[in-house]
Structures are given as structure tokens and as C-alpha cells.
Amino acid sequence: MADLNYIRKEIERMRTQVGRQRKEILQLQRAGISTASAETLLSRMLGKIDTLCDQRDALKKTDTNHNKGRVLGGRRW
């Protein structure tokens, strides 16, 4: 299974791509061009993000060092 930091970076990268895809769909709609294939790609991208978020959440639950020894503000005592 992938590293927690890798999954977080991948989620961030995919969200950036989703934003670009949405802008492209708007441009196509303004130009009067069909956006069916672009919307299909967007839905697949959003599904991939959901899968990555599920993986991230599962890794966070199994990570024993995640909240150990921390107080509000993230300090270690």
C-alpha cells in the first residue's frame, strides 16, 4: 500500500487537474462544442479522488504515530 504523504500529494495533484478539466468544459460549452467525453473524464477523475481519499482515511486510522503525544497546535511534549 502507498505511503500516506504520497496519497495526499496525489489527491492534491488530481484536484488541480479537476479544476483545469472544469475550466476546459466551460470553454467547450461556450464554443458550442459537445462536452460529453470531457464530462465522462471528469467523473472518472472524481471517482479516482474518492478512492484516494478512502485509502488516505484508512491509512490515517492505522497510523499509530499520527496523534501520539500531540496537543492542540501540533506541539510534541
Rank of each mutant, 00 (worst) to 15 (best):
L59T: 07
K23A: 15
D54E: 13
T62G: 15
A58T: 11
L52G: 15
G32H: 01
A36G: 15
M14Y: 12
M45D: 07
L41M: 13
I49R: 04
R15Y: 10
R13Y: 12
K23H: 10
E10H: 07
K61A: 13
L4Y: 00
S37C: 08
L26W: 05
G47S: 04
G47Y: 01
L46M: 14
A31Q: 11
Q27M: 11
R22S: 13
S43L: 11
L52E: 03
A38E: 08
R20G: 14
Q21Y: 02
L42A: 04
G19N: 08
K9L: 10
E24L: 12
D63R: 01
D3Y: 02
L42P: 10
S43G: 10
I33M: 03
T51H: 07
K61T: 07
G19A: 09
A31T: 11
C53P: 06
G47E: 02
I7W: 00
L42I: 00
I49C: 06
E12W: 15
M1Y: 00
E39I: 02
A36W: 05
L59R: 03
I25W: 04
T35R: 12
M1R: 04
R22G: 05
T51P: 10
D3I: 00
R44Y: 03
M45A: 07
Q17H: 11
G32Q: 01
G47L: 05
V18Y: 03
R15I: 06
G19H: 04
E12Q: 11
T64N: 09
I7Q: 00
I33D: 00
N65W: 12
T64K: 13
L42F: 00
Y6D: 13
D63Y: 02
M45Q: 14
G19T: 03
I49P: 03
D54K: 08
A36H: 13
K60W: 01
L59W: 00
M1N: 09
I25L: 10
A36E: 13
K48E: 12
S43W: 07
L4K: 01
E39L: 06
R44E: 02
K23Y: 11
G32P: 02
L42G: 03
L28G: 08
A36R: 15
L52D: 08
R44D: 05
I49N: 05
T40F: 10
Q17D: 09
T40K: 15
R44C: 03
L42W: 00
T64V: 14
L46Y: 06
K61H: 08
